[in-house]
Nucleic acid binder design. Structure first.
Lengths: 222, 222
DNA sequence: GTGCAGCCGAACCGTACGGTACGGTACACA
DNA sequence: TGTGTACCGTACCGTACGGTTCGGCTGCAC
């Protein structure tokens, strides 16, 4: 069981320690994060670690929460956009998404949460899902909603549309990266692929009366 | 370092033990797979485990190799297809892909390989990538190539086309499942979503002279 | 000053796990 | 019948790690 996911904030010293912890995880994976190693790296005592975070699971949760807390999604203002501006905003979103997912911090945290799953609870995964991807999805849905309101795209289910958008942007790359393939090779092509993906997305969801648009609403999708 | 990824086959007894090992991993994650627990579950001695698989890493590699070895992709015959038959074959592929990825064995193995990544090597991830996803991708590319040869779709880069197909089918679901979200809710919608995804794919890649088709060939994609 | 709280660093404890060694059994083969 | 091989089950060893305790230092309240 994971101790309370800490809705309360941590103080400066504690955040500093969490930053050290995150660095350990990024560099050496979960097994590099021993309490002794963290105490040494952060110049603090194990006693303090246990006082602040409860136990090791609490520490893991705090690391994820700490990092998730600094996810700051740029607010997508809903002001009037031309079709090109809308497209440009989507391309920017796509580039941002790929950049985040390819980042070693994101990858390390995802690996950490995934390896903690399976054991009943999956609290870390939920945390990452809600506070990480959730925020990003929210931003994208706002943007899509604005595009829909202004007639740039036609769709009734923003969540469905977002999932399609995500799929076109990310494809199988996140999985490959998680399994150890280096994102470096792909990183050069982020901008180019972002444009391609958005073109594809707009082809599917463009509002110019393409007859297939009604089909893009499957039934029981989670 | 992981001992030789065993190109040689294992005998029946060893395969039996590997099946037990896989069951342990599926049920309890990596940390449930202790040598003692496996010896007990498989009614074998720890001594035999070390004789057969070298060390724990070798055992993990053997588990992955063992499971990957039974990936049998139905051969996609390239005989003449109508457009509808081609579409149906794609839908079947999509359903198969979702069913495999949502399976607890696949999820457990992916979690195992992902949690082993980060530490230099990532041999398990490579194994899974090559012998798991690779086979599936190969099957899909064969099918796409046949469709292309018979004029059902237009694209010059099968790998790019396959990645788009994968993205449209899987979207963000694999990641969510890996993080602990239950596939059960989505499972009912597999068939419906498979059809939707294939419709979208065909919209993008249909050969009927849609002018956007040339754009589907980004530059530096990995 | 005295007392107290928070913290560091190090020593300590218990245990779980990877890996090894050994005794005992079944079976093949001569 | 003797010898060897492969195996099981168990006991064993060493260590690494989670978690606790303690002594000592600093700073603050009074």
């Amino acid at each position: 069981m994971i101790s309370a996911p800490a809705p309360e904030e941590f103080n400066d010293r504690q955040n500093e320690v969490l930053a050290s912890a995150l660095r350990l995880v990024v560099e050496g994976g979960e097994k590099a994060l021993t309490t002794a190693a963290l105490a040494r790296a952060a110049n603090c005592s194990k006693e303090s670690l246990y006082r602040w975070f409860g136990d090791r699971d609490g520490l893991l949760a705090a690391i994820v929460a700490h990092q998730a807390a600094k996810v700051r999604v740029p607010h997508e203002s809903a002001e009037r956009m031309t079709a090109d501006a809308f497209r440009a905003r989507l391309v920017t979103f796509a580039e941002d998404l790929l950049t985040v997912l390819a980042g070693e911090t994101s990858l390390a945290l995802n690996r950490l949460a995934i390896s903690q799953t399976s054991r009943e609870g999956a609290a870390l995964g939920r945390l990452l899902l809600d506070r990480g991807r959730g925020r990003i999805a929210e931003r994208a849905r706002d943007l899509l909603r604005a595009g829909q309101a202004q007639g740039h795209i036609a769709c009734d289910d923003m969540t469905e549309a977002y999932r399609t958008l995500y799929g076109l942007i990310v494809r199988d790359q996140h999985g490959r990266w998680l399994l150890g393939e280096s994102p470096d090779g792909a990183r050069d092509g982020f901008a180019a692929h972002a444009r391609t993906a958005i073109d594809q997305f707009l082809t599917l969801y463009r509002a110019t009366g393409t007859p297939r648009d009604q089909e893009n609403t499957p039934a029981g999708a989670l």
